[in-house]
Design a protein around this nucleic acid. Structure first.
Lengths: 345, 345
DNA sequence: TTGAAAGCGATACCAA
DNA sequence: TTGGTATCGCTTTCAA
């Protein structure tokens, strides 16, 4: 591969000037610029990025940490981040933590070893306290997940409100025996806790209370089956209960789809016997006619990258924590019970 | 950030020896090794990867080119490649071509600028002739797609046979008016062409012929709607035809799912009125009880990375082109027509 | 506008 | 086993 030296040899022009041409420095005469460009084309020259990185202390690369790519939510998030990254001449490194604390921590070495200029964190396996020390090595922006401390650069959706409007919708449709199945992972993120708060708020407004036996954790991540299978198991479990809920509010469209699929097998009517709400509004929700809470993935990706770029450019970010609204998408899985609202409000 | 110099200052030991410790060179006394390690821990030292890249001419990073991440087939492929890459201390750069020839070409600059040690190409927008020149800048391995020239390092599935067994299955189940909907993208890859050959072979064996009006291109990529929507449109179109096929062999599970969804709306019985076969065997195929052709994604990812690693290590790869078998997964979307095989063989 | 030279942070050859 | 030094390829300051 040709280097600057080869251009120097060919043109007799100094490396400084050649470098100036490469970097579009205006202080170069037109004639030299032309000769350098000619030589570069002739030799098929491209600057060596390792040398540039070393010299400039900049990689034009960022890492996106996520639990796993085969979860379509994260694949879409990565897709959106990539759109904007490409526009900004940034490379993207995929980093799957696979729900592993240690793996997650290891990825932060990328910042120390200067392999990336910054990190987007879309899942949180460790406590923020254990991660925050890495911010001294480079900027980190949280996306989707969020921690208690709101002085962290974060972009997240208002899951509390999302859970609230979902629950409220169920109640208004006449369902008041509502089960919840959310990722209970409140060790690190406030996400699960916030959802529960939102649900409770809606229930309280209608004079209802949460029943402990109707709260189910999403165990698909820990037990290594798919979220769809998780939904199937959940419904089977629920059907063995004596006092059954008449609606299930789930933490993902996959779980919701699993419930609907298993219902068909068990002869359970959706929404006649049991209503279902998903989360995210992925393509699968539409396919299964599943009421869900839409996540603004496009905006989350865009704003997250923007924050990161601002931090890399040393500009302080305008807002540290950005909260985005969540939206209810009504489909047939929560159609009003034929008997009309069972509840007197 | 501390550098080797800081370790030298702190310990009085030369940079050469420090470097040896970093790289586990055995020719270092235990005492010095201990002192260097102590200092490294004390200063929280990590080698600067840009410097290592420059010096070693190696990045430990590879790029994976694919059309788009939101296609679950590619998300899964990337996931599998990543598993093995992580084991080999390789970073992965995501590169979405978004079905764009120019974008694809631009990604090969990564090889020229030494940002990656090699490239995995899982889609092909340009002709191989236009890409092959880049092999002089670093190794490139084709995965999934394949070109006419079989001296290219490639891992691909036997789509000809896949199409053959799928078609044969349909015929044996009593369907002999078979429509095909495959990506017609044979400008660059042999994939589409091979599928057609496989279909024709099966038809011929049973004395049937292909009907031109029953061959449909998959236009979702070009027309910018989802593959599921593509399936829906396809069925609507077919239902307007006078002479309708009684089975549809599609190029993806998404298209198959779209057909099944639209059938429900139109009151078309699957498989009673029309049978459907998908391709890939993604989770969605199981959900929709869709007969499909299973792709060995796990093996494809593994073997592809192996080939690339061999090429990077300068070992010639043992086999240039590896062909993997495709497997029929029978589900209810192709259940034998109740009237029994219509065909006298 | 141009060029000489220092330096980014590591590795490896050579000599001791 | 150890250390001095050249080198990887580029950018940037300084002086001309």
């Amino acid at each position: 591969m040709p280097t600057i030296k080869d251009i120097v040899k060919l043109t007799g022009i100094s490396r400084s000037t050649v470098s100036r041409v490469i970097n579009n420095d205006p202080h170069v005469s037109e004639e030299k610029r032309r000769r350098v460009n000619e030589a570069m084309n002739l030799l098929n020259y491209t600057p060596n990025s390792a040398a540039q990185r070393l010299r400039n202390q900049k990689t034009n690369t960022i890492a996106v940490l996520m639990p796993e790519l085969k979860n379509p939510f994260f694949a879409h998030l990565l897709d959106k981040i990539d759109s904007d990254a490409t526009e900004n001449n940034l490379q993207l490194l995929v980093c799957q933590t696979r729900y592993d604390k240690l793996k997650e921590l290891q990825f932060f070495e990328l910042l120390k070893t200067k392999q990336v200029d910054g990190i987007i964190l879309s899942s949180l396996e460790n406590k923020w306290e254990d991660i925050s020390i890495f911010t001294s090595f480079g900027p980190i922006v949280l996306c989707n997940e969020y921690s208690e401390k709101d002085h962290i650069p974060t972009v997240y959706a208002d899951h509390r409100h999302g859970a609230y409007i979902g629950t409220k919708h169920l109640i208004e449709q006449g369902y008041h025996k509502i089960a919840f199945c959310f990722d209970e992972d409140d060790r690190n993120s406030k996400l699960g806790k916030d959802r529960r708060i939102g649900c409770e708020k809606a229930l309280e407004e209608f004079g209802l209370t949460v029943r402990k036996e109707w709260i189910f954790p999403d165990t698909s991540n820990v037990d290594k089956y798919t979220a769809v299978e998780g939904g199937r198991r959940l419904l089977r479990k629920i059907m063995t209960m004596e006092n059954r809920p008449d609606a299930i509010f789930t933490g993902s469209d996959q779980v919701g789809a699993g419930i609907i699929l298993e219902a068909k097998i068990l002869g359970v009517q959706i929404p006649g016997d049991i209503a279902v709400i998903g989360f995210d509004d992925q393509e699968i929700a539409e396919m299964f006619d599943l009421t869900t809470i839409r996540q603004p993935i496009r905006e989350m990706g865009k704003l997250t990258l923007q924050q990161l770029l601002d931090l890399i450019a040393q500009k302080e970010v305008s807002q540290r924590a950005i909260q985005l609204p969540l939206e209810l998408v009504v489909r047939n899985s929560t159609k009003a019970n034929l008997l009309g609202p069972k509840l007197k409000v």
